[in-house]
Amino acid sequence: MTDALPLATHYELRRFYADQLEARDRGGTEEWLAVFDDDATMTTKVLGRDSPVRKAEFAAEVRALDASFHEREVQRRHCVHGFAFSARDGVVEARFYALFLVVDAASGARLQSAAMIHARLRRHGGTWRVLSRVIERDDLGRLRPGPPSPG
């Protein structure tokens, strides 16, 4: 049975995500990774796979990705909206839409990609732990600038 979340919990989860993504945007990779449970999984095209990857593996890849952004002096901004939360048996299902913007001296600001994010979380003391995250991302980050393709 799905339980309705109290409004206070809804806003608490929105703050949790705002804080987490703000940490990622300012280069706080370890702070961002810390909210993932030790057995957490992530599924995303960014890692080059369509199947879940355990934290031990995706953490190393996230660190390398973040280091490459830092080395190239590329800033990121995550813009999120459309949050929906539901709970079942003590686990919260989260869904939201995200835009990933990048800013660098050579190209200025541009949209890198957009994604629908699905996550499972559980309360852990006074905060939340991410159990799994699926990022259904488009391919904007892989496209080269140029005229739109026909059709």
Rank of each mutant, 00 (worst) to 15 (best):
F16I: 10
Y17E: 08
Y17W: 07
A18E: 13
L21G: 00
A23P: 04
R24F: 12
D25F: 00
D25G: 00
G28T: 07
G28M: 12
T29E: 12
E31Y: 03
W32D: 04
V35D: 03
F36Y: 14
F36L: 06
D38L: 15
D39S: 12
A40S: 04
T41R: 11
M42P: 03
T43S: 08
K45C: 01
R49S: 14
R49P: 00
E57S: 10
E57L: 07
E57G: 00
A59E: 11
A60V: 03
A60Y: 06
R63M: 11
A64F: 10
L65P: 02
S68H: 05
E71A: 12
E71V: 02
V80E: 06
H81T: 08
F85K: 03
A87R: 15
A87I: 08
R88F: 09
V91W: 10
A94T: 08
Y97L: 06
Y97S: 10
L99K: 00
F100I: 06
F100L: 14
L101S: 04
L101E: 09
L101P: 00
V102P: 00
V103R: 01
A106T: 12
A109L: 13
R110G: 01
R110S: 01
L111A: 03
Q112R: 12
A114V: 09
A115M: 06
A115I: 10
A119D: 14
L121A: 00
R123S: 09
H124W: 12
G126E: 09
T127Y: 11
T127G: 08
R129P: 02
V130Q: 02
